[in-house]
Design a protein around this nucleic acid. Structure first.
Length: 563
RNA sequence: UGGGGGAUCGUCUAAUGGCAGGACGGAUGACUCUGACUCAUCUAGUCUAGGUUCGAAUCCUAGUCCCCCAGCCA
């Protein structure tokens, strides 16, 4: 059997039910090439759930040598804005996809759509209904009881044509009339109970201006837009399954050419976060986060600011697969993809998040040595850099314990450790303030161990990061945790599930002097700690970093398990 | 209580009547100038009950549970 691209070992893209359908369509000759589309409504920012759809649609087009259109589904001028149109294009490009010449707007088809509606009326399959919205709702019936027919259902074709034209001409106010498809008020599928296909909305449209005061509804617009563009596979999310009957019905009535096939898949849910635009907006308005690009947000602008790379997000989207079962993907998989990407690419640097001063008593006062450090042990071509070493340095508070438990093999009184790329030091004294807090350590170093290895071959168990006290630069670091405390934040009360500790700001951080010229979105691995990204708030005077994701931490895990 | 969908390791997913496989997570160990990375080993699954078949996650029958639909939103 000839099944191209199934379980494709080259791209690593696993088989899924949509690829199976496409393979079959290609095999049987139903299609010669495939055309997909990503059809966002410009009413908000894109999030990682959209990324799944983008990767799916653009990825399919790419793998099968087809085309993917970017089409704005802009049929509701009430909610849509140019700002979103721009941000969506920026985000799709940032993710790494290119629609070429295929940028479309549903509003480009308003004339054609109007003609199709007239056609439907002429066929006696659509009518102008003058019921109020409340009445329409009442007439629709319920899930278990059939609806009843509108008294306006049997208006003559001539009257419908005239009324519809007058609707278009602005002779009626919002809500006075709607155009409805004449299907079946008793259908067990509520979507088919004479759905509204046009409504009056006297409002300026961001693209068509005041040309129209009637706007087509989604169900009428989407199938026809797909058909007009020659979309072969119209991929959408599960909640549109019921609408497929209407999608097909409309095309059957008025569209002559080939009909696109609507295929539904399960939208992405990620543990410990939300994917609903409405609820995300609510978090912003309630001040729980700072905006669409808050680094805790699952929006593409938020992830970008946090330090996520498009490569990691695409890899993630490839790995989660595509299916029809609702699911919640573990955010740990996303983090895994990110670490894998950043591990190869992020230059290393040392930063001390919670400084503890160390004085190296046998190191000459005033002496400064420039020591060579690897920029990225994973990538020799990243080269080396020189970092200053001096008598007074900072180490991480948590890298010292006065009474270390078993298995803690960092610094402790009398113990020798290695300072990365520098020297072995041994702790000789612990200095405390009046309250008993450790404020400073006294150490000695072994000049023979310069660069980090001992000529006599002796080993130390721990290697620690450090910065020179005098030469290091102050910085602020923002540490993030999940936005919600529950894997599924919708379980129970959403706002009780908000994690009050999702942001921790460290203001006393010290970084290597070489960091002074960093730019927003620059990414680093702070050795032994994690990946960090320069925030847009960062300035020459005040460096600001976001923790993108911490390194895996076996020691912390052991500690946690003990408790 | 109408209609439309769905159920495979803890999580996500593959299998198209022929060895239930992969990834993440977890555990153990090796390595280590990052307790990182890497490597090795292990862990763990077909919703239930019947049936068809040499053979069933897959086909049939009957259940159970979950999701979606009653916007002039998409």
């Amino acid at each position: 059997m000839d099944r191209p691209l199934e379980n494709n070992p080259d791209t690593g893209t696993p088989s899924n039910f949509i690829r199976n359908i496409i393979n079959e369509d290609l095999r049987t000759g139903k299609h010669k090439e495939i055309v997909t589309r990503f059809p966002p409504e410009p009413n908000g920012y894109l999030h990682i759930g959209h990324a799944k759809s983008i990767c799916l649609n653009f990825g399919l087009a790419k793998d099968y040598g087809g085309t993917c259109h970017l089409r704005f589904d802009d049929t509701n001028p009430e909610k849509e804005e140019v700002e979103y149109i721009e941000s969506i294009q920026r985000d799709v490009r940032w993710l790494g996809f290119d629609w070429g010449d295929h940028l479309y707007y549903a509003s480009d088809y308003f004339d054609q759509l109007y003609d199709y509606a007239v056609d439907l009326i002429k066929q006696g399959k659509a009518y102008v209904c003058s019921l109020s919205s409340e009445e329409i709702r009442e007439y629709r019936g319920t899930l278990t009881e059939p609806g009843k027919e509108s008294p306006y259902r049997n208006r003559s074709i001539e009257e419908n044509l005239e009324l519809f034209e007058r609707m278009r001409n602005g002779e009626f106010e919002d809500g006075e009339h709607v155009l409805r498809a004449k299907i079946d008020m008793a259908s067990p599928n509520v979507v088919m109970r004479d759905p509204i296909i046009y409504r009056i909305r006297k409002m300026e449209h961001h693209r068509t201006g005041d040309k129209w005061c009637i706007y087509p509804m989604y169900d009428f617009t989407h199938c026809l837009s797909d058909a007009i563009e020659g979309i072969t596979h119209s991929i959408c999310t599960l909640e549109f399954e019921n609408n497929r009957a209407l999608y097909d019905w409309i095309l059957d009535q008025v569209f002559d050419g080939p009909h696109p096939q609507q295929i539904e898949f399960a939208r992405l849910n990620l543990s410990y976060t939300l994917m609903s635009k409405r609820k995300l907006l609510d978090l912003i308005e309630k001040g729980i986060v700072d905006g669409w690009d808050d680094p805790r947000m699952p929006t593409l602008v938020g992830l970008r600011r946090r330090g996520y790379t498009p490569e990691a997000i695409r890899d993630f989207c490839d790995r989660i697969g595509v299916a029809k079962a609702n699911s919640i993907v573990d955010v740990a998989l996303l983090e895994h993809c990110l670490r894998e990407d950043l591990n190869q690419r992020a230059p290393r640097t040392m930063a001390v998040l919670r400084p503890l001063k160390v004085v190296i008593e046998n190191y000459p006062e005033g002496k400064v040595e420039m020591l060579e450090a690897l920029n990225n042990p994973q990538d020799p071509s990243a080269g080396t850099r020189l970092i200053p070493f001096s008598r007074e340095i900072y180490i991480e508070q948590e890298d010292f314990m006065e009474n270390p438990p078993r298995k803690f093999y960092r610094l402790a009184p009398g113990r020798e450790v290695r300072l990365r790329f520098a020297y072995f030091i041994t702790c000789t004294d612990v200095i405390k303030d009046d309250d008993g807090n450790i404020v400073e350590l006294r150490c000695t170093y072994d000049p023979e161990t310069k660069g980090g290895s001992a000529p006599d071959g002796r080993k130390v168990r721990a290697t620690m990061h450090w910065v020179s006290a005098e030469h290091s630069l102050p910085a602020e670091v923002r540490i993030y945790d999940h936005l919600f405390t529950k894997e599924d934040p919708n379980e129970g009360d959403l706002y009780e599930n908000v994690n009050p500790n999702s942001l921790e700001v460290l203001t006393n951080v010290r970084v290597e002097p070489g960091m002074k010229d960093v730019k927003p979105e620059d990414k680093f691995q702070f050795e032994r700690q994690g990946y960090f990204c320069v925030d847009k708030d960062s300035t020459q005077e005040r460096l600001v970093f976001n923790q993108t994701v911490p390194l895996r931490d076996t020691w912390a895990k052991m500690q946690k398990k003990k408790k």
